[in-house]
Design a protein around this nucleic acid. Structure first.
Lengths: 176, 176
DNA sequence: CCTAAACTGAAGGCGAGGTTCCGTTTTGTT
DNA sequence: AACAAAACGGAACCTCGCCTTCAGTTTAGG
């Protein structure tokens, strides 16, 4: 593979990642191309169609997130800190894209698998945080994960922004 | 105006209101017609085009909200209670629709006016709540209003749902 | 300098949703 | 009951934006 091709493929991926994180999953191929300073044709040279690009990014993102999740889970942290760390990490990712793919990803086994594993992981940590007494108990772990999804799938979500902070504070146990 | 026409106009408005509150502003005319049990043609008999329907609903909603807001503001409540009441009220409204219209409503003076008044009202109450010591002080009133917008413009938001609760709890002052 | 790989962006195709229109049904009146 | 005007229904039409293609041009690498 030629050097410029490799460079451009990388450029497309990172540009698209940023745009999806910022504006949600509805970004058009032309917008991505323009933002990357390339022609649309170049996108199609690297990814046969839009779906392929989306899948590639979703896979990369979820693989990375799961890895980060497992590391964090195994780290010597309070469950609250672990949860907080994970949420902040998600806030910089194109989660809206991934959510929007959930509908049609029944065909892609790995995406399905990754998503199941992540859900389970988040839910388990939330449950442990409740036992630990740091996460409020009047909401079920499953629903906590749902709330965090809303916080994090919002287009324009960024790590450390105020809404994320407020939601985390709101989830903190008020009866210590 | 014939009785059935009056009934159907009302039916369209309430159905559309529900759908917008539940699914956001992108609901199609056909979906509204189907949900109301009417043909698309009937929608166009009552509203010349989509824009007219949207405007009508937005106007009704904002007029009602402002009225409720002023009443609440004047009531004998702590500023925190007032804010909470207002937010819970908004959560049942098609706020996503209204937000999506903000871009193109420069042409409609009354909508613009209503929105300005509401912003001012919310901001003032937030500011007073901070002085009162019930609303956290590390976020500016303007940004508080922005956060509440996110909470409330989410498709599917309902009064008393868990995300609204969590965000309100997160906004509550932690240094009493 | 040459060739194959890579790039460009205008043109084509397609689907989703808004809008129209006319035959059919309902309402209210004589 | 019969009639005229008003209202309704929904298939057909139209528009617009976006995905995708492709023939001509540029560039990397030997």
């Amino acid at each position: 593979m030629r050097a410029d091709a490799r460079r451009n493929r990388e450029l497309i991926t990172t540009t698209a990642l940023d745009l999806f994180a910022e504006h949600g999953a509805a970004v058009s191929m032309e917008e991505i191309a323009r933002a990357a300073g390339l022609g649309v044709g170049t996108l199609y040279r690297h990814f046969p169609d839009r779906q392929a690009l989306l899948e590639s990014i979703a896979l990369d993102t979820l693989r990375g997130l799961l890895k980060f999740g497992l590391t964090t889970d195994a780290a010597d942290l309070s469950r609250w800190q672990a949860l907080q760390l994970l949420v902040e990490h998600c806030a910089g990712l194109p989660m809206a894209l991934i959510k929007s793919m959930s509908a049609s990803l029944s065909l892609h086994p790995e995406l399905l698998e990754l998503q199941r594993n992540l859900d389970t992981l988040f839910e388990r940590i939330a449950e442990q945080a409740q036992l630990e007494g740091t996460l409020r108990r009047d909401i079920s772990p499953r629903e906590v994960v749902g709330l965090l999804n809303v916080a994090v799938c919002r287009p324009g979500a960024r790590a450390g922004d105020h809404l994320t902070t407020v939601i985390l504070d709101g989830l903190r146990s008020t009866a210590p």
